[in-house]
Design a protein around this nucleic acid. Structure first.
Lengths: 344, 344
DNA sequence: GTGAAAGCGCTAACAA
DNA sequence: TTGTTAGCGCTTTCAC
C-alpha cells in the first residue's frame, strides 16, 4: 500500500492540494468546513508529510551534522545525546559522523556533506588545521565545540580551558600538594595547549616550580593512555603527589595504574580529571573533575547554527564571529579529598 | 553563490543533464570526450549531488533510524558508534532517536518517522509491547536488537540471554560462591526475564536453593540503581557472597556500594556484570562481565535491514522472520577472581 | 479562501 | 550514445 500523498488527501476531502497543505502547515485562514473535511481525510489516509520533498522545495534539509571522534567515548556520547535533544527543539535531525580523530576523516566528513545534505554542522575537531577549512562547503553554518583551531574564522563554543585547568590545579595546590604532574600534553590538540597553560599558571601562582618531566604527553585520550602515562610518572625517582589529567578517561586510567602499584588515592596521590563524565562520579575513589556545562554547550552550538542558517536566508548579518564561553564548575570528590559521602 | 546543479554542469560542459547524470552515477557508456568535458565541468563548478532530490526521485531516503534509550549510556554509545560504521558501508546515514526508555517516546519515535523519512529502523525497545507495533509505518523494515518483545513478528538480533546469564552465574558457582544474588529483575524488560531465567537455571544446576529476597529489582539500569540495590542486599541479615548484575552500570553501582560499606570485592563479594562496556575493564576492581559481540550485533542488524529493503523493492521474499543469535563471551576479571594482572 | 500550476534537483523512460 | 521530458511530493506565487 503506497503511502498517502497530499494529493490523495485532497481528492478524498474534495479540495485542492493547496488547502490540504494549508491545514497541514497550520495556516490560519481555511474555511472551517474545509478544515474539518481535510482533517478527516488526513486521519482516514494516515497521511504523513514527506519531509524530504518538503525540504527539497524549501531549500533546507532538516539535518545538521555532528562531527566527532567517536561515540563510544563517554564525553562524546553524552554530548551527542544533548545535541540531539537540543536540535529536536529546532526541528532538526542530527547526522553523526565519526572521525576517529584523524584529520583525513575530519576533512572528508566536512566536504562530503554537501551543502544540500545539511543545514549546518557542529564539529569537535581534533586534528583539523586552518588550511583544511578552505574548501569547506560554503554557506553551511559551522560551529566548533571544545577544540579551537586558531586563526579560523568559525564560531566557537567552549569553556575557558585555561581558567578551568588553573582552577583544577589550584585546587591541588590548595590541599597542600607540591609536586603536581599533568597528563595529556599533545601538540596536535588545541585544548591540550590551553590546559597546559592553565596548569603552568596555577603552578606559578602557588609558587611551585615546574618540572618538565612531570608533564607527560598523551597521544590519545583513552583510559589506556592514562594508565601508561601514570606508570611512567610512578617510575620517576621522585614521585608526584598529585596529577592533573586533561580528561576523565586519562584520569580513570591513572587511577587504575595507581591501584596496580599500591599507590593510595588521594593519600599518596591526588587525581583530578576533566569532563565530569558520569563514570567519574562512580569510580573508586570517585573523581574530582572539571564539570563543563555540556547542556549549555550543546544548546548554544545548536542555537548558533540556527541563527546563522536563518540569517543566511534573510538579511545576512555579515560577519560577527562568535566565541562563546560556557560555564564550568570544579566538582570535588574523593580523588582529592578522600572519602566524605557516598555519591547521590 | 548558489550551489551548482546538474543543469549548471550540463550547460558548462555543453551536454545534456542526462549525460552529466550518467557520468555522476558511473554509467559506463559515455563518449570519452563527453566524459572528459563533464568531469572538467564537475570540478569547475564544485558540483555536489543533492542527495535529498536524488532520494526523492528514487523513492529511498538514504537514512535508517536507530531508536535507543539514551546515547549517554555507555552500552548504547558504543553500539551506536558501531551501527553508524556498519550503516556507512551500505551508504546509509543514521538518525538517532532517544527515547529515555519510555513507551511513549518509543511509540512516537517509530510513528513520527514517516515511511518517507527512513529506509528502515533498528530499535532497542525497553517498554514497547506487542500492540504498539500495530500502527507502525508499514513497509519500513524493522529490526529489534537486544530486547525481544515476544509475539511480535519482527526481525531480532541478540545474544542468547538465558545462556549468557547461566554462564555468568555458573562462573560464580564454580568459584565456590553459594549465596548468589541478582540485580535487575524488571517486569517491563524482556531481557530481564531471560537473564533471571538463566540465573535460576544456573542456581539449579549448581544445586543452590533460590532465595526470593536475593533477586532485587531495578527499574532503571543506571549506576545509581545498582548502588541502591546493592545497599539493600548488604542490609540483609545474611549477606550474599556474590551478585550477578543485569548490566555493567548496575555492577559499577554495586561495586561502589560495596566499597562504601567496606565490603571487599571479590573476597567478601564477587560481582559479575553484563555488556562489557569499556568502563568495566578499568573499574577498581575490574569487572567480570558478559561480553556480547556488539560489532556482530550492529552489522547483523544493518544487514538485515539492507536485505529487507532491497527485497521489498524487488521480488519480496514473503515472510521468513529472522531471530539471529550473535556470539558472546564471559570476560573474567578481578571482580570475581581477584588481582591477576593489570589490564592491557 | 481556494485552485491551478510552476518548480526545488534529480532520475529514468522514451526518443532520436 | 545522448537529448527531451515527465514526474518524485511538496510549497508557493498568482489568479480567481
Amino acid at each position: 500500500m503506497r503511502a498517502a500523498t497530499l494529493k490523495d488527501v485532497a481528492v478524498l476531502a474534495g479540495v485542492s492540494v493547496k488547502t490540504v497543505s494549508n491545514v497541514v502547515n497550520g495556516y490560519a485562514f481555511v474555511k472551517p468546513e474545509n478544515r474539518r473535511k481535510v482533517e478527516e481525510a488526513l486521519i482516514a489516509t494516515g497521511y504523513r508529510p514527506n519531509i524530504g520533498a518538503r525540504n527539497l522545495r524549501r531549500g533546507k534539509t532538516g539535518f545538521i551534522a555532528l562531527v566527532l571522534p567517536e561515540l563510544s567515548i563517554p564525553y562524546f556520547g553524552e554530548l551527542a545525546g544533548l545535541v540531539i535533544t537540543a536540535a529536536q527543539a529546532h526541528g532538526w535531525n542530527v547526522l553523526i559522523e565519526q572521525t576517529q580523530g584523524t584529520r583525513d576523516r575530519e576533512r572528508t566528513a566536512l566536504t562530503s556533506m554537501g551543502p544540500h545534505m545539511i543545514d549546518g554542522a557542529i564539529l569537535s575537531p581534533q586534528a583539523l588545521s586552518a588550511e583544511d577549512f578552505a574548501d569547506l562547503a560554503p554557506g553551511v553554518p559551522l560551529v566548533m565545540v571544545g577544540e579551537h583551531a586558531v586563526d579560523v574564522p568559525i564560531d566557537h563554543v567552549a569553556i575557558d580551558n585555561v581558567l578551568a585547568a588553573r582552577t583544577a590545579v589550584g585546587h591541588l595546590a590548595a590541599i597542600g600538594r607540591r609536586r603536581i604532574a599533568s597528563i595529556g600534553r599533545n601538540p596536535h590538540r588545541g585544548t591540550a595547549a590551553l590546559r597546559l597553560e592553565g596548569y603552568r599558571a596555577a603552578l606559578a601562582e602557588a609558587g611551585l616550580a615546574e618540572d618538565e618531566e612531570l608533564s607527560v604527553p598523551a597521544l590519545e585520550y583513552h583510559r589506556r593512555d592514562g594508565a601508561q602515562a601514570m606508570s611512567r610518572l610512578l617510575d620517576l625517582p621522585e614521585r608526584p603527589d598529585a596529577v592533573f589529567c586533561f580528561n576523565d578517561l586519562l584520569a580513570i586510567g591513572a587511577l587504575r595504574a595507581a591501584a596496580d602499584r599500591g599507590v593510595r588515592v588521594p593519600e599518596d596521590l591526588a587525581i583530578v580529571g576533566f569532563d565530569n563524565t558520569e563514570e567519574s562520579a562512580y569510580s573508586i575513589p570517585s573523581l574530582t573533575t572539571i564539570a563543563p556545562d555540556k547542556k549549555a554547550i550543546a544548546e548554544t552550538a545548536v542555537s548558533l547554527i540556527h541563527g546563522r542558517s536563518t540569517d543566511a536566508a534573510e538579511n545576512a548579518t555579515p560577519f560577527d564571529l562568535q566565541d562563546i564561553q560556557t560555564p564550568f564548575a570544579l566538582e570535588i570528590r574523593e580523588s582529592t579529598i578522600g572519602r566524605t559521602r557516598a555519591p547521590a
